[in-house]
Computed example of a mutant assay.
Amino acid sequence: MADVLHAPALYLYPLLAGMLLGVLQIVLFFVGAGHFDHGGGEDGAVDHLLDATHLGDVFDWLNFGRVPFAILILLLLVTFGMVGIMLWQIFPVLPAWSYAFGAAPAAVMVTKITGGWIARLLPQDESYAVNHDHLVGHRGTVSLGPLDDGRPGSIRVRDEHGELHTLRARPADAGMKIEKGAVVVVVKAAEGPGRVWLVVPFEEHI
């Protein structure tokens, strides 16, 4: 244990942070505050931030939406720290930063695999990501565009409670181009990975 405490800070601090996060989640669970919010809490806020970014696709691949965000971060931090420290102990002559080339991929793969196992153990009637199906039929405005057959852009949509959501979107019809600032209607979720929503111009939807 003493050797571990003298490990490079690049790996020791993530390991300790991940372990602290795990202890915190256990404490919150036993005091009754550890239920992961499915709508507007911890995972809801993170989901809202990621929806308009390509980083959301990465977290989708890591099982975000099926596994609580805090668990994924815990797995990433602990694995990165542990593998980095193991490599430091095996190859002590190498510079500390070089171990990240092994620790980072290992952290991603362990998080992906372990997250998949955890997802299968969690109740199937619960979701740990915000469900935006209720926004189908709502009007929004293109905030990052134009929307076309290329990379998805972004739209901003208000729900029935007046809360603003930012969604990645593309036109429902191939070959269509919708300019930034245009009013659109959310039609449905696109098939495939990621959170991309299909939209049509508001006038066409009428």
Results as ranks from 00 to 15, higher is better:
Ser98Trp: 14
His132Asn: 03
Val108Ser: 06
Ile178Gln: 11
Glu203Arg: 05
Phe69Gly: 07
Val187Gln: 12
Gly192Gln: 05
Gly18Leu: 02
His134Ile: 08
Val46Phe: 03
Phe36His: 12
Leu135Glu: 03
Phe91Ile: 15
Pro123Trp: 01
Glu42Thr: 13
Thr114Asp: 07
Ala96Cys: 10
Pro95Ile: 13
Leu74His: 11
Val186Met: 04
Leu50Ser: 00
Gly137Met: 10
Ala172Tyr: 13
Leu77Glu: 13
Gly84Asp: 12
Pro123Ile: 00
Phe202Ala: 12
Phe101Val: 15
His6Glu: 05
Asp57Ile: 14
Leu75Pro: 09
Ile71Cys: 02
Trp117Arg: 02
His138Thr: 04
Ile178His: 09
Gly81Tyr: 12
Ala169Lys: 01
Ala103Cys: 13
Ser143Pro: 03
Asp125Gly: 00
Asp37Met: 11
His205Met: 07
Trp197Met: 01
Glu126Asp: 13
Glu126Tyr: 08
Leu21Tyr: 07
Gly56His: 10
Val184Met: 02
Ser143Thr: 12
Arg139Met: 03
Val183Ile: 09
Thr111Glu: 10
Arg195Val: 02
Leu5Val: 00
Leu20Met: 11
Phe30Pro: 07
Tyr99Ser: 14
Val184Phe: 04
Leu28Lys: 05
Glu203Cys: 03
Val4His: 10
Val200Tyr: 04
Leu77Ala: 14
Ala106Gly: 08
Asp57Leu: 15
Leu16Lys: 00
Val157Asp: 00
His38Met: 05
Ala96Phe: 09
Val187Gly: 03
Gly181Trp: 05
Leu21Arg: 11
Leu49Met: 01
His138Gln: 07
His138Val: 01
Val110Glu: 13
Ile178Leu: 10
Ala7Arg: 15
Pro123Met: 00
Val31Lys: 13
Gln25Arg: 08
Lys112Asp: 10
Glu204Ala: 13
Asp159Asn: 05
Glu160Asn: 08
Phe80His: 11
Val196Ile: 08
Leu24Ile: 07
Val183His: 09
Asp60Phe: 02
His38Trp: 07
Asp173Thr: 07
Ala172His: 15
Arg151Leu: 06
Arg168Ala: 03
Gly140Glu: 06
Lys180Gln: 05
Gly102Pro: 11
Thr53Cys: 01
Glu163Val: 03
Asn63Ser: 02
Ala52Cys: 01
Ala100Lys: 13
Ala7Thr: 09
Ile113Asn: 09
Tyr13Asn: 13
Glu179Val: 06
Gly162Thr: 05
Gly194Lys: 00
Ile26Gly: 00
Val200Cys: 07
Ile85Leu: 11
Met86Phe: 15
His132Glu: 07
His134Leu: 06
Leu62Asp: 09
Met176Asn: 15
Asp51Ile: 06
Ala174His: 14
Asp47Arg: 05
Gly56Ala: 05
Leu135Gly: 02
Met176Lys: 15
Leu24Gln: 00
Asp37Val: 08
Glu160Cys: 01
Ser127Met: 10
Gln124Asp: 03
Ala100Ile: 14
Tyr11His: 13
Ala129Val: 05
His165Asn: 00
Ile85Phe: 15
His6Gly: 14
Arg139Leu: 04
Trp88Gln: 11
Val46Asp: 00
Ala100Leu: 10
His165Asp: 00
Ile90Asn: 09
Val83Met: 11
Leu76Arg: 06
Asp173Ala: 02
Trp117Ser: 15
Lys177Phe: 00
Phe36Tyr: 12
Ala129Ser: 09
Leu198Cys: 03
Ala182Thr: 06
Asp173Pro: 01
Phe59Met: 04
Ile178Lys: 14
